[in-house]
Design a protein around this nucleic acid. Structure first.
Length: 891
RNA sequence: GGGCGUAUAGCUCAGGGGGAGAGCGCUUCCUUGACACGGAAGAGGUCCGAGGUUCAAAUCCUCGUACGCCCACCA
């Protein structure tokens, strides 16, 4: 047997291993999902990252979780598909390419629509696959042969069909309404593309004079410039202050327009002056009021939020320049009254953070309520379930208060709206590009210039990626998908919409489960952002610690709460990876490379073998159950506990003795158990740490049914592995060893001094078991010998009590008697506290009567144990007290 | 204005109706043949507060406090 094996390095080197293994996995087609095996399907579609994006730490968590589930189910024999892909990300991508153009002094208008879109495609082909390459570095087991992009031909067909169907049904309509307008991107935005934040602004007050000159009315506004588009003044119907002037008219000081004073319940008499200026083209409330009262809607801003010709002398000014100019002009006219600080929420474009303007324009909308109702019902009927369940309410509440969705965008990059207008005023939507109007046959037709909101295509992702509207094998096999894994921030943006479209077009929910995870933040709990400069690059962590270490760290902390990532954790995980590596190195260098046979029969097994197999059975059950219920962090910890605290700390130490035994059968049996457990442990750890487990697994001297651990069978415990008596016996050994080590440490006894304690137990079976494994205790606790005796006579030794056994360590002048007395007295105190606690419980008749019998029995057992501990300790104290003082200790 | 989450060891966090846990940090010891990215032994918690349910509450319920997050068209 070789004593060292130079070809296995002491430290695991992830950089050497990861790339090599991943390429093998990919080129051997291990990620490829088959539809012809008859196995049960398991499918996850990736939340498609933006094509402009680079992998950030949030992706690492999201993808890590998906990969854990995919690898787990694949090993369990499911036909597993993890489908990757990317989103064309309309505004974001267009912005990136426009920025690039600008650096060359060009705008998209210089190129024209067609050339610009070509340019974006070029960009996509050049840079669009960065995330795919980065995902490979993390070990993502995606089926790259099925990679999809929302602008692919097939997915575009799906988008078109959905639009046309909804249009024909009347669920898509065109309307002149208030939408959120980004003056920088020059496009409409949906409500959820607007981020709201508190803004320290001001409230301006000014006066409108009544037409008849009799009096005036003062209004308050945070957006003074909108007064250019005022078409009425509103007050509350019950407001006494204004009752006399309701129905009268004021005159606009700049345009001369007449504005009527109207009464409407929507006015809050408590706010400002109780009189509101009404600007229907620039405020949603005002718009609705205008609809009720038939008011004129005057749009005063252009697409860049500059004042248009409706603004008279203010034309051409930016909205904020106009605000000050108007304040000045009103002051000149003596109409301006005052201003006060006022904080309120403003909306910003979620892409470029420009303040959005509520703006009246012609846009396309989807009527949401008829789609939302089935989506609510599906979740209430548990056809789709959320984990954790609390997100159910969030989802339902959002859908219940949903408003129509503005889907048109004034962009060039995206799915063009498949609607045409003819010269004779007809409008139609169709699947194939038309050459003439279907109603009047004129060939003078023009397509709508706008494109669709990016989310219009992403909402179809669970079925468009599987081939819909074609009835493909993939679609039949994998829809509905099994789990959608995502952060909670896009439940409303994306999950709800997929539910609605899936139910409408596939007549079934898109996924059985929605597994919602938290956001990765920095160690202080702040969101990572480029402006704070606290962004952690996952690939730097991979370079430094390895992909397995990063994955383990993120999975271990994926408890449903946000993850406050500290890089120190990653180095801890790296240590764990290395620990596994060295456990394997031990098995191979100390055990040899010859193939092991099957597990030895139980009667040839030692206690430690039966113990580790029993613990393995528990670990397998625990990890499997936890993964099945999405408690991935608990599963990861269970793997960690088993491998480090049980297999490495105890089993490897226990087996060393036998591995080098002269008894070749015993040595071979030990090696067999060692390698088998290692094999199973690697499989358990593989979903979380794919690289190191594969590398180790391939080195193991075992018979393999598959060339890769990826496709090896997920562990299922053999019934005979479970062995409670072995666990109980082994716990006693652990306790004895710990007690002896603790004793030695407490007294600072040199590790080189070999102790020779005596051991006994009131239970003869226990004593027999202990003496059978005395050799193991000696090795682990550094003893010369451990002699089993029927009872411990009152010797001048230190008495250690653990579980069911008693140890007596002869003092032999090693320790201070006074110190030993103190130690024992402390133990007595501690035991007495426990005794009182347990007695109190047992004295309670309610406890005896109502608590389960096992619980009562357990308390009685513990009481007995503590009492006998006190008895024995007191006997020992008396012995010590009867001895001569320090310096006169026994020879 | 609504809704949600979290309060457990110095720090970061798991767990969870019946003996308080991990990692990191700290103290002491150990270069013992897998591993110093390691081993051993320790110190360190009225499990936020107050009520309630229960034989039993750190755990379940209610209220409160603190912090955090999300949603929202108050001019």
């Amino acid at each position: 047997m070789s004593t060292s094996s130079p070809e296995i390095p002491k430290n695991f080197d992830p950089n050497e291993v990861e790339d090599r293994l991943y390429r093998q996995w990919e080129s051997n087609g291990y990620f490829h999902a088959r539809t012809d095996t008859g196995s049960r399907p398991f499918c996850i579609v990736i939340p498609p990252p933006n094509v402009t994006g680079v992998l950030h730490i949030g992706h690492a968590l999201d993808h890590g979780l998906q990969d854990v589930l995919a690898r787990f189910k694949r090993m369990q024999g499911y036909a597993t598909l993890w489908l990757p892909g990317m989103d064309h990300a309309g505004i974001a991508t267009q912005n990136v390419v426009e920025r690039e153009l600008r650096s060359q002094g060009l705008s998209r208008h210089d190129l024209g629509r067609e050339k610009f879109v070509e340019r974006v495609w070029e960009w996509k082909h050049l840079y669009g696959n960065r995330i795919g390459q980065q995902m490979r570095r993390l070990g993502a087991s995606c089926d790259w042969s099925r990679e999809r992009f929302t602008m692919d031909e097939g997915l575009s067909r799906a988008v078109r069909k959905v639009f046309v169907d909804l249009y024909d049904e009347g669920l898509i309509y065109r309307g002149n309404r208030i939408i959120n307008w980004c003056p920088r991107c020059e496009t409409a935005l949906s409500d959820i593309e607007v981020d709201h934040s508190e803004h320290e602004g001001r409230l301006d007050r000014f006066r409108y004079e009544l037409e008849d000159g009799s009096s005036s009315v003062t209004v308050a506004t945070t957006r003074l410039e909108t007064m250019l588009g005022d078409t009425a003044i509103a007050v509350h119907p019950a407001d006494e202050r204004y009752a006399a002037i309701v129905g009268k008219w004021v005159v606009h000081p700049f345009s001369g327009r007449r504005l009527q004073i109207i009464a409407d319940d929507a006015v809050d008499p408590e706010f400002g002056t109780g009189a509101v200026k009404i600007t229907p083209a620039h405020d949603l409330n005002d718009f609705e009021m205008a609809e009720r009262h038939g008011l004129e809607k005057v749009n005063i801003l252009d697409t860049k939020a500059q004042v248009n010709s409706e603004g008279g002398s203010f034309e051409g000014m930016d909205r904020y320049v106009a605000r000050e100019a108007i304040a000045g002009k009103l002051t000149e006219l003596g109409l301006y009254e005052n201003r006060s600080p006022h904080s309120y929420a403003i909306g910003r474009c979620s892409r470029c953070h420009t303040i959005v303007e509520p703006w009246l324009s012609d846009q396309w909308f989807v009527k949401m309520q008829p789609l939302a109702e089935p989506a609510i019902a599906a979740v209430q009927e548990h056809r789709t379930r959320f984990h954790p369940a609390r997100w159910t309410n969030y989802y339902v509440n959002w859908l219940q208060s949903i408003r129509d969705w503005c889907i048109s965008r004034q962009l060039w990059w995206g799915h063009r709206i498949p609607v045409w207008y003819c010269d004779n005023g007809h409008t139609f939507a169709c699947m194939e590009d038309p050459t003439a109007c279907p109603e009047c046959a004129t060939e003078k037709i023009v397509q709508d210039a706008d494109v669709l909101d990016t989310w219009f295509s992403s909402q179809l992702w669970p079925f468009s990626t599987l081939g819909w509207p074609e009835q493909t094998e993939d679609l039949k096999t994998f829809y509905p998908t099994s789990v959608l894994v995502t952060g909670y921030e896009i439940i409303h943006l994306w999950v709800a919409r997929m539910m609605m479209s899936g139910l409408r077009f596939m007549d079934d929910v898109p996924f059985e489960w929605v597994y919602v995870h938290g956001i990765v933040r920095d160690a202080e709990g702040r969101k990572m952002s480029k402006s704070i400069g606290n962004v952690i690059d996952p690939l730097e962590l991979v370079d430094q610690y390895g992909a397995d270490a990063l994955r383990f760290t993120l999975i271990e902390h994926a408890t449903g709460q946000d993850v406050f990532l500290s890089t120190e954790w990653v180095s801890g995980s790296r240590n764990f990876v290395n620990k596994m590596w060295n456990a394997a190195r031990f098995a191979l260098t100390q055990g040899g490379r010859a193939q092991v046979g099957p597990l030895p029969p139980r009667d040839r097994m030692e206690l430690s073998d039966r113990w580790i197999l029993s613990r393995l059975a528990r670990a397998v059950t625990e990890v499997t159950e936890r993964l099945d219920s999405f408690e991935v962090s608990v599963a990861a910890r269970a793997v960690y506990e088993f491998i480090w605290s049980e297999f490495c700390d105890w089993y490897i130490e226990a087996v060393k003795l036998r591995l080098s035994s002269d008894d070749t059968q015993a040595a071979e049996d030990a090696r067999s158990v060692l390698v088998h457990v290692l094999d199973q442990a690697m499989r358990l750890a593989h979903p979380v740490m794919p690289f190191v487990t594969e590398e180790i697994w391939r080195m193991l001297p075992i018979e393999r049914e598959e060339p890769t651990i990826m496709l090896s069978a997920w562990p299922v415990p053999e019934p005979e592995w479970s062995d409670t008596p072995a666990e109980e016996d082994f716990v006693r050994i652990q306790q004895a060893v710990s007690a002896l080590r603790s004793f030695r440490s407490e007294y600072g006894i040199d590790p080189k001094i070999r102790l020779r304690p005596l051991v006994t137990s009131a239970d003869s079976d226990v004593l027999e078991a202990v003496s059978r494994d005395a050799g193991l205790i000696c090795r682990l606790a550094g003893l010369d010998e451990l002699r089993a005796v029927p009872s411990l006579e009152g010797d001048a030794g230190a008495r250690l009590l653990t579980g069911g056994i008693e140890l007596l360590v002869p003092l032999e002048g090693l320790i201070d008697l006074g110190a030993e007395r103190e130690r024992l007295a402390k133990l007595v105190d501690k035991a007495n506290i426990e005794i009182r606690k347990i007695e109190k419980k047992l004295d309670n008749p309610g406890f005896i009567g109502k608590a389960p019998q096992e619980v009562v029995a357990e308390q009685r057992r513990r009481l007995g144990e503590e009492r006998s501990k006190v008895d024995k300790l007191q006997v020992q104290l008396e012995v010590l007290n009867s001895l001569p003082g320090p310096g006169e200790g026994p020879a």
